[in-house]
Structure formats: C-alpha cells, structure tokens
C-alpha cells in the first residue's frame, strides 16, 4: 500500500453550519494500479485529491504515504519528492518551453536523478508523445492535448511512484482523452506507478482497475 486515507473529515464553514465534503472517508491505493474517483460536479472530488496531494489539510484524519503520515513528512517535501500532480487546466509556465517546464520540478526535488536532466526531460516528453521540435516550443504554442502531455511528463520528471490527476481530460476531445488515459494505464501497468484520476466520466471509470464513488461526503468503491 503506497497511499492510504484514514478517517478524513473535511468541511466548509457555512455560517453557523459545517457543510461536510468528506465524512470519515477512508481509502487505500496500491502501486501498479490505475484508480478513478467518480462523482458529480460539486461532490468533493477535487477537495479529496487536494488532501491526497497535500495541497490542503483535512480537519481530522490522516493521509499515509508508505505508512508515514504526510504531515510528518512535511507537505512541501511530500509534494516535491513523492507525488506528481496533474491539473485539469494544465498549469504550465507560459514563458518556458515544454522541456523547460519539465525541468522545473527536477531542480526542486531532492530525489536522485540522472546527471543529464535535459536528456531525461526530452526522453520523457518523447515517450509521452512530444517530439523534440515541439519540446522546444513555448507551451502556449502547443495544443491542449499536447500541453496536458507536457504536464504529465512534468509529473513524472521527479521519478515519483504516485500520480494524482484532477480531471486531466476535462478540456480535451474524446480521441485525445483516450490517448491520455492510455498513457495512465501504461504508467500503472508497465511502470508500476500508482495512478489516481479524478473524473466524472463513466467511460474512464470503466477502464480503471478500481473505482471510488463520492456522493454526499461518502466514498464507496466497486470492490
């Protein structure tokens, strides 16, 4: 078990009332598997993912990474060394080229990386489907699908085993969506990563190894 959520509670204060987004939510995730978290808009999927990726902290409960509380690891440190995050709106730095965007986390992480980071970055992009000529372009001159590939490459650049994605295909057409999902599957099954993807698409959920459903603060799973 690489990642485990234990009794997470998360709410928004709504005047006097607490509006619970997550109620005593627990879940566990393993390496080599492709997970989806399914739920309607506003059900709290992003909130849950933010807790798993240490961009936010729960009001109670813990998130364990390799049995260790991520609060203990340190949220910043956990983000730079243990997790790769992919967002719906790519979140690339527009003044940098594709390959430079991939290089950014490589100088932030403390993980051991090969000497020649630039070559690694090019190879990663190539593997994800961005050829060298496109890798040297500024990211705002790439298509949405290409930009999301760069974001995936960036998430992989620090050599992490855990990939979290929040509606990564939300802005893409179906064909592009499938290509991205195929990449996630490959990462999980061929490279032994733990991939957790938040989506509201049943088609994607059907392709995953395990699906969690979030409804009214309660997380259920099909297994």
């Amino acid at each position: 078990m690489i990642l485990e959520a234990k009794d997470l509670n998360y709410y928004y204060q709504d005047g006097e009332n607490r509006r619970y987004i997550l109620k005593n939510t627990s879940a566990s995730f393993e390496k080599g598997k492709f997970y989806t978290i399914l739920g309607q808009s506003g059900s709290g999927k992003t909130s849950f993912l933010a807790l798993l990726s240490a961009l936010d902290s729960p009001h109670s409960g813990t998130v364990l990474f390799n049995e260790q509380d991520i609060k203990q690891i340190g949220y910043e440190k956990y983000r730079r060394n243990n997790v790769g995050i992919i967002f719906q709106s790519y979140n690339l730095i527009p003044t940098l080229t594709a390959v430079e965007n991939v290089l950014v986390p490589m100088s932030i992480t403390e993980n051991e990386l090969p000497e020649d980071k630039k070559t690694v970055a090019y190879n990663l992009l190539d593997y994800i489907g961005i050829v060298k000529s496109k890798a040297d372009r500024f990211v705002n001159k790439l298509s949405g699908g290409e930009q999301q590939r760069v974001a995936i490459a960036r998430a992989l650049a620090t050599n992490v085993e855990l990939i979290l994605a929040d509606e990564p295909t939300g802005n893409l057409d179906e064909e592009m969506e499938q290509e991205i999902i195929d990449i996630f599957k490959k990462l999980a099954h061929e490279h032994q990563k733990c991939v957790i993807v938040v989506t509201h698409s049943n088609e994607i959920a059907l392709q995953s190894d395990q699906t969690f459903s979030l409804k009214k603060g309660v997380l259920t799973t099909d297994e």
């Binding site: 961009l55 910043e76 440190k77 956990y78 983000r79 730079r80 060394n81 995050i85 979140n91 690339l92 730095i93 527009p94 003044t95 950014v104 986390p105 932030i108 992480t109 960036r154």
Partner: peptide, 13 residues
C-alpha cells in the same frame, strides 16, 4: 500568480 502557484504546488520552498 499562476506561475508562482505552480512552483509551490511542485513543492518549491
């Protein structure tokens, strides 16, 4: 803002 947020989300100090 977005650029700065990206650095922080990537765990930059």
């Amino acid at each position: 803002k977005r650029e700065l947020g990206i650095y922080l989300s990537l765990g930059e100090r």
